[in-house]
């Protein structure tokens, strides 16, 4: 039994991050087993009108190839997805993505709240939500939705964050299951992966 005593009830992981999260997310992606079991959905704040470059920058380090999903694409095991610039990335019932150009939420498109909330609605208690460093409160409400629906929530240890507004906002809005450093988040994900391979 591992340190986190995590179960294998989960179907997907969503990770939100903003200012100061790039390094942390790169570390996580480079440390993942190449055959990581669950789909990971990343919603990171990014330049709104620069379509290219970001996924490539993350892919330099990532153990698993990241992709920006297209509308109504199936969400598959073992894949890592990144919310495209200037679109909200929603999870649709039936396990597909749906994109939207709706108004910005928390001044953001993609908005982390929208990705987390729609994922929580679809996966309910079978979702893990992770929120990293960031300078606004986007994601806090989404983390609450995940928790309300029985999912598991992790925020990055605020003292480790370049900018802790985002994790702090989540912590003040909802109980979370773990407050972890990037190093511990990596340990958690590895333990989770082992659980599926037993």
């Amino acid at each position: 039994m591992g340190r986190f005593n995590v179960s294998n009830q989960y179907k997907a992981i969503v990770i939100g991050g903003s200012a100061g999260s790039f390094q942390g997310i790169s570390r996580i992606l480079s440390a993942l087993p190449t055959d990581f079991e669950l789909p990971i959905i990343l919603c990171l704040h990014r330049l709104k009108h620069v379509r290219n470059g970001f996924v490539e920058a993350l892919n330099i380090k990532s153990a698993v190839l990241l992709e920006e999903p297209e509308d109504k694409e199936n969400i598959k095991k073992g894949k890592i997805y990144l919310a495209p610039s200037n679109y909200h990335l929603c999870v649709e019932l039936g396990n597909t993505f749906a994109l939207s150009t709706e108004e910005m939420v928390n001044n953001s498109r993609p908005s982390i709240d929208i990705t987390l909330e729609t994922a929580a609605y679809t996966y309910r208690n079978r979702l893990i939500g992770i929120l990293l460093s960031g300078a606004n409160k986007d994601g806090a409400w989404g983390m609450k939705k995940i928790k309300d629906r029985g999912g598991l929530t992790i925020v990055q240890e605020p003292s480790e964050c370049m900018i802790d507004t985002m994790p702090a906002a989540a912590l003040s809005l909802t109980p979370v299951d773990y407050v972890l450093t990037i190093g511990d988040i990596i340990e958690f994900l590895k333990e989770l992966d082992r659980k599926y391979k037993q």
Partner: peptide
């Protein structure tokens, strides 16, 4: 209509 966005609207 796609449920996720329709619901939000």
């Amino acid at each position: 209509y796609a449920m996720s966005s329709f619901k939000r609207r």
